[in-house]
Design a protein around this nucleic acid. Structure first.
Length: 442
RNA sequence: GGAGGUGUCGCAUAGUGGCCUAGUGCGCCCGCCUGCUAAGCGGGUUGAGGUUGAAAACCUCUCGCGGGUUCAAAUCCCGCCACCUCCGCCA
């Protein structure tokens, strides 16, 4: 949710952001108009309400007096009662007005909210303008292997995985349909090892591990920003009005829902591993081979709550951690600054780390980290006591992928394959795999 | 799944239609007093929004959430949610 005050104070900045995203800048003016109407309607309601309350209070007093007078047989008792009745009639009229004015201001508030929600987060200066192809390449790390020089043609991950007997696509499809799979033996253990490594690094980096709900209410899902433009990516459980989360980011963002948190000791950093569910509705026919793009995978996610002024530093920290992991897995990768048009609604900036996939002869997204500034937290009602002055202010949130299961498995198998079909396990993973150094065909 | 109960300010509690502008205690913050500490005394202490250049001040909303009745709702009615107790079932 965009900050309506920012929109009032500096609409030009929001228009620019909309343009950078390739979205409609005029929505800013519609929001401003709605905001003005809403405030006018609210004022009218509040004024009428104040009067109603004061008249209503008089009614009580006048009725009391009139009754007392009647009891005492005062000569003006009837007159007093008439006055009280008059006030009561007036209060009833006002109550009617208040109801109408309240409804009007409520309608305008709802419409304002609906319209404002279509605006994405204001992108940070420096984020490249444009769509998917317009990213800025920040750095390339490592060198893809020259398989020709080594004298063999690299196989793709599926071929390798099937050779090792660790990936089973056919049975996945039989049981659950396309884009489902079984991991077996070392395959299953690879997933556990990757999540184990991720948890290890998370704890070493000072993140608090959390086990989170993977089914959440609509309010949480919407608050985290997953029902805006990508609503059809999400599995919904109709009978229970719950949503299956596509990332533990949802549970992590919801953790402090509607809370005032204490950031005086520094940012709150959490990490959670979960199974992630994605419909992949918009990607029919894309990446259909193997386990590169699937409906279900494991992921360990980092999540940070911090003060807005610390958000960029935290973002850099998340990127550093993600890079360290891929360094240790010895996968060549590059880091890109994702273009505004390719950002999700809540993100003000996003860095993707793309790992080298030999069979595709290109870099593909392995991990990602987003700075959502105050956008997500505003909608989720997550605030802190204002460090200077009174009241509260909205905090900033960031998230980053520590590791997922499937894509890193693809990258590991392909990058570390040998001519004889075996796969060398990078040293960092060996402790999580019972010390094994090479995966061999059975 | 069945039966019953509870939900009020950070915590505990009072409050069965108008004197609630939600009281009291604890905790916390500021000050006074005081060799030091404690006690005592005085004041402050939910959050959101609006009018305003800002502040001050004022107003509206906020007693789990959403509706309703009423001139008037923490209080009455309806629906929902969460938690607790017991029974049943179950990993």
């Amino acid at each position: 949710m965009i900050d309506i005050k920012l929109l009032r104070d500096d609409p030009e900045r929001v228009r620019k952001s909309q343009l950078a995203r390739g979205e409609d800048p005029d929505v800013v003016d519609r929001v401003l108009e709605l905001d003005e109407s809403r405030r006018a309607a609210l004022s009218a309601f509040e004024q009428a309400r104040a009067e109603q309350k004061s008249v209503s209070k008089q009614v009580g007093a006048l009725m009391g007096q009139a009754q007392k007078a009647a009891k005492a047989g005062a000569p003006d008792a009837a007159e007093q009662m008439a006055t009280a009745q008059q006030a009561r009639t007036r209060a009833a009229e006002l109550a009617e007005q208040v109801k109408t004015l309240d409804a009007r201001s409520g309608e305008l508030a709802a419409e304002l909210d609906r319209t404002a929600r279509t605006i994405g987060n204001v992108v940070i200066d420096g984020v490249p303008t444009g769509g998917e192809e317009d990213f800025t390449l920040l750095e390339t790390v490592g060198t893809p292997r020259d398989f020709a020089a080594e004298g063999f043609a690299p196989k793709d991950h599926l071929e390798i995985g099937q050779g090792l007997g660790i990936i089973d696509i056919e049975r996945g499809a039989k049981v659950a349909g396309s884009r489902f799979y079984y991991l077996k033996g070392w395959g299953a253990r690879l997933e556990h090892a990757l999540m184990g490594l991720a948890q290890q690094v998370a704890v070493d980096e000072g993140f608090t591990p959390l086990v989170v709900p993977n089914l959440v209410k609509e309010h949480t899902m919407a608050g985290a920003g997953f029902l805006d433009s990508h609503a059809d990516e999400v599995y919904r459980l109709e009978a229970d009005e719950l949503y299956l989360t596509g990332t533990s980011e949802v549970g992590l963002a919801g953790y402090h829902l509607d809370e005032i948190i204490d950031l005086s000791e520094g940012p709150l950093r959490y990490a959670a591993t979960s199974t992630c569910y994605r419909r992949e509705a918009g990607s029919h026919g894309k990446d259909t081979k193997g386990i590169f793009r699937v409906h279900q995978f494991a992921k360990t996610e980092m999540f940070v709550y911090c003060r807005p002024e610390d958000a960029e530093a935290e973002h850099a920290n998340l990127l550093r951690i993600e890079r360290g992991i891929l360094d240790s897995l010895e996968i060549p990768y590059r880091v890109i600054d994702v273009a505004a048009g390719d950002l999700g609604g809540p993100a003000a900036r996003k860095y993707d780390i793309e790992g080298w996939v030999p069979s595709q002869d290109r870099y593909r997204e392995l991990t990602s980290t987003s700075n959502c500034t105050t956008f997500q937290a505003r909608r989720l009602g997550i605030r802190e006591r204002d460090p200077q002055g009174q009241g509260t202010r909205v905090v900033a949130t960031l998230n980053g992928t520590m590791l997922t299961s499937t894509r890193p498995i693809v990258a590991l198998l392909e990058n570390h394959q040998q001519a004889d079909g075996t796969v060398v396990v990078p040293p960092v993973l060996r402790p999580f795999l019972g010390g094994v150094e090479v995966l061999e065909p059975r």
